[in-house]
Design a protein around this nucleic acid. Structure first.
Lengths: 227, 227
DNA sequence: CTGAAAGCGCTTACAG
DNA sequence: CTGAAAGCGCTTACAG
């Protein structure tokens, strides 16, 4: 059912129905309630494409997943949390998978040109990340999950990698341990650098010399745990 | 850049440009090449919302993820494979997360009414799955990942759970083992039933009595491996 | 082989 | 407080 038909049934104009549904203030309370009730009853919902065309908002935020290793449990968990919140606003997550950095950039171009999403979540950033410059130039709103050294005025969110590892390392030192290994992510990832810093800071504070052999870098897999 | 502006630059009508881009046969070869080249150069792509409104196709297929346990590595892997194939057609995956079966049904209603996706991937079906009847009644095209006993004429894809477990059980029997445990999924899940059947078939074929204590049902987590 | 124009289903100034 | 109508950016009969 479309707006025209729905409005006809209510014997109201499309204008008034649209305004009632969108919460505009100039609709009479009684009218609004009648419309809201009928929408539930008939299951009417505005067509997303039409809405997107008229307003410029499509109600979806994009996330690009790399086919390979990035697609781990962290991504799942993050998407679960993100989706839970977005659900409240009836916003969905648009996932595009790619198999190379070039394909990822091409995907951002495609998403921007076709106006497929309202914003992007950029995750697992590099110290200096070309994706940020691209997104900026495309004027595609985005937020970064993780930290980076890239320039520009953009929002990001991250956990305190430095603090977490410094604190846990200190804790082990408190317990009397001295040979403490750090299983870290790939070098170049900023979170890995921060963890390394936290680790070194804690060790240095106690005068423990760092043994490079105890610092591993790589994928976060069970296998990587076995040197 | 929109079609109007793009067509103006080429000094062609929107009609011809649209047809050239969509691969309609009635466009002169030279014209088509000129359009295709310019599209790449200017980065023109049709607005998805407009395209969806005009054609009824939105270029996205939906998948609903339950916030809890379903969101494991299997889902990630499946989405990775799915996305890789869809990428070739520039189709994206629209993910909605829910936290209850009711919310999942409500989401299908929302996706259908707002015409947000072209089709749905239904995963982890139950023996008798109410989602299938709903999707049918909503006339939302879908395919089932996994098997079910539900009625109706619909497509599904699955691995041979019965054969896989029968064969691996037989293999262990061949090696001389007799106390073989089966760490299975939840009862009621059809894949779990099939695996159970495969297990029992293999054991019965050798006259080995089944010990219910060796059959675990639950989440596929490390913790579940410890009785 | 090409183009003018209607139509897809909404929103939102503008008018009352 | 309500409505008629233009406009969002495409596709596609229809006409030539």
């Amino acid at each position: 059912m479309n707006l025209k038909e729905f409005a006809n049934r209510l014997e109201l104009s499309q204008t008034t129905v649209s305004r009632a549904l969108s919460g505009y203030p100039e609709v009479k309370q009684a009218t609004r309630e009648r419309v809201l009730k009928a929408a539930l009853e008939y299951g009417y919902r505005p067509n997303t494409s039409a809405l997107g065309l008229a307003t410029g908002r499509v109600g979806a935020i994009g996330i690009v997943l790399k086919g390979g290793g990035e697609f781990g449990p962290h991504t799942s968990e993050f998407m679960g949390g993100l989706g839970g919140r977005l659900q409240q606003e009836e916003i969905d997550i648009l996932v595009s998978t790619v198999d190379s950095p070039e394909a990822e950039l091409a995907t951002y171009r495609r998403l921007a040109a076709s106006k497929r999403v309202d914003a992007i979540i950029l995750h697992s950033p590099f110290l200096d990340d070309p994706r940020i410059a691209l997104l900026n130039s495309l004027r595609l709103p985005f937020i970064v999950h993780g930290r980076t050294n890239s320039d520009g005025n953009f929002g990001w969110l991250d956990i305190d990698n430095f603090g977490a590892v410094r604190q846990s390392t200190s804790h082990l030192l408190d317990l009397g341990h001295r040979r403490i290994a750090l299983l870290n992510g790939y070098r170049g990832r900023i979170f890995a650098e921060h963890r390394q810093d936290g680790y070194q800071t804690a060790l240095s504070a106690r005068g423990v010399t760092i043994d490079p052999d105890l610092c591993g870098h790589g994928e976060f897999t069970d296998e990587m745990g076995f040197p």
